[in-house]
Lab assay of single mutants.
Amino acid sequence: HSHMSHTQVIELERKFSHQKYLSAPERAHLAKNLKLTETQVKIWFQNRRYKTKRKQLSSEL
């Protein structure tokens, strides 16, 4: 499990705020920019979407 830097997370968050789903080319581009693997980016987005979904569910209770 590799640790992401604060800067990388900020960039991922910024991208996520604009779009929740990335196409393969977008993911490849973002990964390259942030010096991450595409898998890391993919998993981060999956986890981030899951967290957002959970938060929405709990706020509706």
Rank of each mutant, 00 (worst) to 15 (best):
H1S: 08
H1C: 15
S2F: 14
S2K: 12
M4C: 13
M4F: 13
M4S: 00
S5C: 09
S5G: 04
S5P: 02
H6A: 12
H6E: 08
H6P: 13
H6L: 14
Q8T: 05
V9W: 14
I10M: 13
I10Y: 13
I10H: 11
I10T: 08
I10G: 04
E11Q: 11
E11W: 06
L12G: 02
E13S: 03
E13N: 05
F16P: 03
F16D: 01
F16H: 03
F16Y: 15
F16C: 07
S17V: 08
H18N: 07
H18M: 12
H18W: 05
Q19Y: 07
K20N: 09
K20P: 09
Y21R: 05
Y21N: 02
L22E: 00
L22K: 00
S23I: 02
S23T: 11
A24W: 09
P25W: 12
P25M: 14
E26D: 05
E26A: 06
R27M: 13
R27W: 06
R27C: 06
A28T: 06
L30A: 01
L30K: 00
L30Q: 01
L30N: 00
A31D: 00
K32E: 10
N33C: 15
N33R: 15
L34W: 01
K35S: 11
K35M: 11
K35Q: 12
E38I: 07
E38L: 06
T39S: 08
T39G: 07
Q40Y: 05
Q40V: 05
V41W: 01
V41Q: 00
V41S: 01
I43F: 07
I43K: 09
I43Y: 09
W44Y: 03
W44D: 00
W44P: 00
W44K: 00
F45R: 00
F45G: 00
Q46G: 04
Q46Y: 11
R48N: 03
R48Y: 03
R48G: 03
R48A: 11
R49T: 01
Y50G: 10
Y50H: 13
K51M: 12
T52D: 15
T52W: 15
T52N: 12
K53A: 12
K53F: 07
R54E: 10
R54P: 10
K55D: 15
Q56K: 12
L57M: 11
L57C: 15
S58Q: 12
S58G: 13
